[in-house]
Simulated scan of single mutants.
Amino acid sequence: MQVNWREIPAARNSFAVLGAACEKTGWHLYPVARPAPDITCYSLNSINERLYRDEIADADCITIVGGPHATACWPEVAVYADYVVVGEGEYTLPRLLSEIEAGRDGHIPGVVTRDWYEPAKSSVRLDAYPAFSLVKGYVEISRGCPFACGYCQTPQIFGHCMRHRSIDEIARYANRYGQARFVTPNAFAYGSDGLHPRFDKIGHLLRKLDHEIFFGTFPSEVRPEFICEESLALITDYCTNTKLHFGAQSGSDAILSRLHRGHTIAEAIRAAELCLDTGITPIVDFIVGFPYETDEEQRETVAAIQEVARMGKIHVHRFIPLPGTPLAGTRARSLLSETEKVCGDLALGGKLTGSWNEPEIRFFRRYLK
């Protein structure tokens, strides 16, 4: 039985992770540019799902769909896919493949069919699975997030309790290549409960790595309240990156409170100042157009964007109501003319990136070329 993996740019790291997990039980995932027999697996997010829905429905093979969108909207996905993997796939996907090969119905925890579903009974222990194998990926060092930001799918998929890969296992994979980059919702939360940093453990980790280290930058980030002299010293002492990526998200404390962000705009501004004082460029995320954002609250965000832009760079995008989040089903509000002007002027000056008018442009541009 041949098992294929549908190549999708946004799912490359999922391919690395799940391909490695499947190899442990003797399954090899073959990359394909279109569905092919016997089985084709997909990992979809809530932005690109519409591009592959018809392809999956019309596929002349067995289809298995997972990823953030499948986890949030499994009843919808089960209409056009043969099997839907809900949540983490390292244990579930290889087990499902064995069920299919044996001619059974695939009724196992964590899998949805058109007439059956039972949630998974446990979470994945990261050390039980390789970070990657034949397909190179980023090293995922942590999963889960104790916060409940209204727009974010992460805690809905991976839970509110943080789980960490051990230092030795991280070093085992990170030291295979000249650069070490990591996947984590908050790099400065490594080894902790996600609320109270353990910088001693981060220092221990960084000292175990042999090559260029990029920590707290793409494809991960940090939280602003975790940025302090001690955490920045870890970057300057051990890491190659001269930038640090973190989210402010709004310039309004009222909006941040409603989002359950767990920090204030003053903490985000202070984080940017500390980065600047240390010689690190802050790259700060903002979201505009929250559904309950007033004109004055949007103006507060614009003022914060302008202030931070004097110290570093801004990444801004229009609010997207992702399925499975507290703000699912809402709509982005319109932007003020001054918001569009400030973002446009800063973008022309090289201080701002993102898409603040049509949020899907930045996601679809790569697919529609």
Rank of each mutant, 00 (worst) to 15 (best):
V222M: 07
T236I: 00
E297W: 09
T242H: 14
E229I: 02
A180L: 04
D285W: 01
H260Q: 07
R261C: 13
F286G: 15
G191Y: 06
R176M: 13
T240L: 00
I287D: 06
R223W: 02
T217A: 14
E297L: 11
R181P: 01
L256K: 12
A174M: 08
T240V: 01
H211K: 15
S220Q: 09
I235N: 02
H204G: 00
F290G: 11
A187I: 09
R299F: 02
I213Y: 02
R258T: 09
D200L: 09
A272F: 09
I202K: 13
F246N: 08
T240K: 12
C239A: 02
E221W: 14
G289T: 10
A189K: 14
F199G: 11
H204M: 06
Y238L: 02
I255G: 11
N241T: 03
A174G: 05
L206C: 11
D253Q: 10
L209H: 01
D253M: 01
P291W: 03
A174K: 10
E221G: 01
S192M: 07
Y173L: 05
R198T: 00
H204L: 10
A271L: 06
G251F: 02
S192L: 08
T294A: 00
G203E: 15
L244K: 12
L205G: 07
I227R: 15
S192C: 06
L274V: 05
E230D: 15
T217F: 05
K243N: 14
R198K: 09
D295V: 13
D237I: 01
V222E: 06
D200V: 09
Y177G: 00
N186G: 07
I255C: 12
L276D: 09
R299N: 13
A271K: 12
F199C: 10
L209S: 03
L276V: 13
A248S: 14
E229T: 14
I283P: 00
I213E: 00
G178W: 12
S252P: 04
F246L: 08
A174W: 02
E296M: 12
A248R: 07
H245A: 11
D200Q: 06
E297C: 08
C228F: 00
S220W: 15
H245I: 00
